[in-house]
Design a protein around this nucleic acid. Structure first.
Length: 304
DNA sequence: GTTAGAACGTAATGTTAGCG
DNA sequence: CGCTAACATTACGTTCTAAC
């Protein structure tokens, strides 16, 4: 079973979608959980609407028959993301802040607004709020990469655990994002083109200097948006989040598969401290080798 | 297999009581 | 009066559980 999630779907819109699904041959089934509002089954697909306004779609291996239904649903509910109001969209996001293993990865993506519907199809319904195996991220990444010829571009920055030990995380994020933006500015040639851009990033606690830099971009004509949980509102930020995730997962995978970094049958696990395998690996590694390898964040103040 | 929600981790930053 | 330690809040995460 494959799943897709549609978040922040308003009650009225959900009602309209329900009516439409029933008309399209769906059969309403009994709620199986107090958090559910309704569930409707179509051939090879189950639509469940939850009280927190999430519509979850569980479907079989082929979703070809569902495409017209998705299309109709979008017509009813409107776009899930803030519509493109500029020619070019530019989103930034990071991943790996809360993990003890591996770097923090920053990503920036830019694409022309014409690609918005295409990218929406690729990442719009993808489920990024829970863990997935590497091929899940890789598959999305490959689809996005194929859009390079049509103007999709990305840049990735890495903050190593070593850097994190010496400097404030948020200031490193400031620097990393600035670097990414400058790289793009160079790529676009003329700053005049800033007028075509909408730049969106998450509010992680931006520093004064970087804020000034962003202000400067705004004065030069760019639309700059800094908001909390930007990835659920802006497609360009969600796309950047996926890219960051893919690059981080690739690094984690390489470490995990390296026999040099396995001990007593243990791998590094997910890299998060709440992962029992990660914690056990850290304990064992310290016991045997005393010092940790380069990819362990010494900045974390925990005793193992 | 899914959800919601809480528990459990980190870092950074905002707030405030109280000490010298 | 100013500084600082302690507490609270807000981000980022994963995992567990009850309910299907």
């Amino acid at each position: 079973m494959n799943g897709k999630t549609w978040r922040n779907l308003k009650e009225e819109k959900a009602d309209e979608i329900k009516t439409f699904l029933l008309k399209a041959g769906g059969k309403e089934e009994a709620r199986k959980n107090p958090s559910e509002v309704w569930r409707i089954r179509l051939p090879d697909a189950l639509f469940t609407y939850y009280q927190n306004r999430t519509l979850y779609i569980a479907h079989g291996p082929s979703e070809k028959n569902l495409l017209p239904i998705y299309q109709k649903m979008e017509e009813i509910a409107g776009p899930r993301y803030s519509s493109p109001d500029r020619e070019m969209l530019f989103g930034l996001d990071e991943t790996g802040k809360g993990e003890i293993i591996g770097p923090v990865i920053l990503a920036g993506v830019s694409f022309p607004k014409e690609l918005f519907p295409t990218i929406d199809k690729i990442v719009g319904l993808s489920d990024t709020k829970r863990p997935h195996k590497f091929p899940y991220w890789e598959n999305i990444f490959k689809q996005l990469s194929s859009l390079k010829v049509k103007g999709f571009a990305y840049f990735v920055e890495e903050i190593s655990p070593d850097k994190l030990r010496k400097e404030n995380l948020n200031r490193l994020l400031d620097k990393g994002y600035k670097k990414i933006i400058n790289f793009f500015l160079k790529g676009m040639g003329e700053e005049k083109r800033l007028k075509e851009y909408r730049i969106v990033l998450d509010d992680y606690g931006i520093g004064k200097n970087f804020r000034r830099f962003l202000q400067c971009l705004q004065e030069k004509g760019a639309e700059v948006i800094v908001v909390k949980s930007a990835d659920s509102e802006y497609l360009e930020v969600k796309t950047a989040a996926i890219l960051a995730k893919r690059f981080r997962e690739r690094i984690i995978k390489k470490i995990k598969e390296n026999p040099k970094y396995q001990i007593a049958g243990l791998t590094i696990g997910s890299g998060n401290l709440s992962d029992k395998e990660t914690k056990e690996w850290l304990r064992k590694w310290k016991e045997v080798y005393k010092n940790f390898p380069y990819f362990v964040k010494q900045s974390f103040k925990i005793r193992i």
